[in-house]
Design a protein around this nucleic acid. Structure first.
Lengths: 232, 232
DNA sequence: CCAATAGTGTCTTTCAGACACTATATA
DNA sequence: TATATAGTGTCTGAAAGACACTATTGG
């Protein structure tokens, strides 16, 4: 069973689907598209589409993300999540879908090319309601959300939700929103400033918040947090 | 770009590939098959094969594992690893391969059905030598190995390498071999016996080792270790 | 006896979490 | 002034790692 037989192989359609997460107005949102055709006409779905014959999988995911957001370069983070291929997951044919997880800072409203007119940001809690998403996309979204939550513990990925320069209070709000948990601002400050490579001081301060002006930081070059920032 | 077009989609071959890890004679081994055909004739490869038209992905992985080991039920653990689909990864055609990671206790030598005659256990260090594995299988094996190493930290997965009943010394040897690190036997003992749900006492003792007889344990029902067992 | 492995106790350092307190802005 | 957020210091308890010590087998 090891060798491929180029003459006769069962044909599959291969697509990429995207779990895109961002934070708008202190609420975690995901990017959905409204389906205009059967099956699941009128329901929402994750953005995605066919992989082209000569296109690499990450390229296909990045292309779909650009098309749906209307941005030429989408800032943030993109990684493979998992692959879903149950025989019945698309009633029309056998589709194997490679899901990608994208984290982005607050983006403008979806606009522009392709079917992006039907795209919109939806609070994750709404998108997760049973029956809201088409196909098995609710499960894919749940898996992506759990992956994001877990990675905040051991990677500096929370900065993917932030603009290039941010305060520690803004970073903390990312953790609180993604984890749905309150964190002690003082302990959080001590922890993230003490983790080597996580943050780089810019020397600038801001006063966009209410009280005392805060230091501004940029993302550091660490890829793994040590010590870990565990969920409460 | 969201909707699938059932009439015209680019056809892909979809396969599963397996990173099977086990411990034999205190060395981490992986299951390889010798290729009998071009391309890469005579080189080793990960076991794998086509997904059947009506077969779920995990079922395909489990089936390949059974076929290659010759066992009707393979004990241990099986999980999806990642999906590899670069356009050039198979010179003959476009193949998207869903890789699975399997961890198993020491199994008999590969025997039996299908192409399993060409299957063998290879020390991981050998299999990872550049040029040894066909296609991009070296990368897949490296990814699987790293996944296994990481999961030992936060899951009770090390027990998948052990027989149903085992001593703490045997469990520690699993950690030491997978991590290529020495662990303090006394601290290790205190840590694993103090982690709720990790181990269940059987009340039995054994004397298979040299010195003082050891308690025998079974795997507990924890799915996550708390506190974590971090690599040194 | 010695060698080998199992298992317990104890000490030091590090880190998480709770929280008092100070600093600096706006209203 | 009050209020809000930023940031520091300090305490307590949990856990990691180093390692002394005891326990129980076989040779």
């Amino acid at each position: 069973m090891n060798d491929y037989d180029p003459a006769a192989f069962p044909p599959f359609a291969v697509t990429v689907d995207l779990v895109v997460l961002t934070i708008r107005d202190d609420v975690l949102h995901t990017l959905n598209v409204r389906r205009g055709e059967e099956p699941f006409r009128g329901r929402d779905a994750l953005p995605g589409g066919f992989v082209r014959p000569d296109e690499d999988l990450p390229d296909a995911a990045a292309r779909e993300l650009r098309e749906e957001t209307g941005l030429r370069r989408v800032p943030g983070h993109l990684e493979q999540l998992a692959t879903y291929g149950s025989p019945g997951r698309d009633p029309r044919m056998r589709v194997v879908s490679v899901a990608y997880l994208a984290l982005a800072p607050d983006l403008p409203d979806p606009r522009g090319g392709g079917d992006a007119a039907a795209a919109s940001w939806v609070p994750v809690a709404d998108a997760l309601r049973p029956g809201r998403l088409a196909f098995d996309h609710r499960r894919i979204l749940a898996d992506g959300l759990e992956r994001a939550r877990a990675k905040l513990e051991y990677s500096p990925l929370a900065t993917a939700f932030c603009p290039p320069v941010f305060t520690i209070g803004e970073l903390r709000r990312v953790y609180e929103i993604v984890w749905s948990a309150d964190l002690d601002p003082r302990n959080f400050h001590r922890k993230v400033t003490g983790t080597p490579g996580f943050l780089v001081e810019t020397g600038e301060r801001t006063t966009r918040g209410g009280g005392r002006p805060a230091q501004l930081y940029r993302r550091g070059d660490a890829t793994l947090l040590n010590p870990l920032l565990l969920r409460p």
